[in-house]
Design a protein around this nucleic acid. Structure first.
Lengths: 124, 124
DNA sequence: CCAGGATATCGACGAACGTCGAAACAGTGA
DNA sequence: TCACTGTTTCGACGTTCGTCGATATCCTGG
């Protein structure tokens, strides 16, 4: 593919930097643009199979796992690959080929951004 | 309607109790059933219009707003109502009619459950 | 170079989704 | 009671999504 996807991953300082996208939802209304961007992240976790794949990666030591370790989620292998691609495009996972196998790892910053957004503490 | 929706809202102790659904994703693999349940919540926030509506409610004083106050999100009024219904069915918002107007309020426990789930701190 | 396993892409299909206008419902005030 | 406003429901339409089997690509070992 020539383009990553409709959503480009948010600008991040690094692997463990806090994603700068959006303040908590209680802090103010989301702009249409920010809503579009964040909705894409939530959409990535809005499928049960994807959520299971993500949890399998996240719960592996180091937040990293080989596809072969997590592929058993009740759907065909192409479907697993399709879902992992979606998670990658959303910026929630990164992938790296090491020899025969491909390893997927959690992108902590993006996940942290989603979590922070759902923090309901008021700002006063 | 006779049925709430495909997903029933998670069992909660009260308005400010921590939703008991799921531990952080790093703690272990999600069961297929839990994945189904949590995916439904993420799906509720996976649409830009819904995310904006939710943020408008959440950022109002008291986490509560009249439909008339938040309906300006660029889609028709029936569509707004449709999206608010989805958010309600997912357990993220509650609604109450007071006279002519209907007020929607954030359900803190469910939102907190999602946030907690995305907490990437390891458990060791 | 070739065989074989691991992963990704392609093309197609049915189901679910977001959107709208029209119409129904609910509550207020004259 | 009736007119009016706010909100929900209904029915339909085009689009997006999840899934699959077939196939292509990448890497390793012989």
């Amino acid at each position: 593919m020539s383009k990553q996807s409709a959503v480009e991953p948010p600008v991040l300082g690094g692997d463990d930097a806090v994603a700068p996208c959006c303040p908590p939802l209680t802090a103010g209304e989301l702009s249409a643009q920010d809503a579009e961007r964040m909705a894409a992240m939530f959409k990535a976790l809005s499928d049960p199979v994807r959520l299971r794949l993500f949890s399998k990666v996240a719960s592996h030591p180091g937040g990293e796992a080989c596809v072969c370790d997590i592929a058993d989620v009740g759907v065909s292998q192409p479907t697993v690959s399709h879902h992992l691609k979606k998670l990658r495009e959303a910026g929630l996972l990164t992938s790296e080929r090491r020899g025969t196998w491909v390893y997927y790892a959690v992108a902590p910053a993006v996940v942290a951004a989603m979590s922070a957004m759902l923090d309901l503490r008021t700002t006063d």
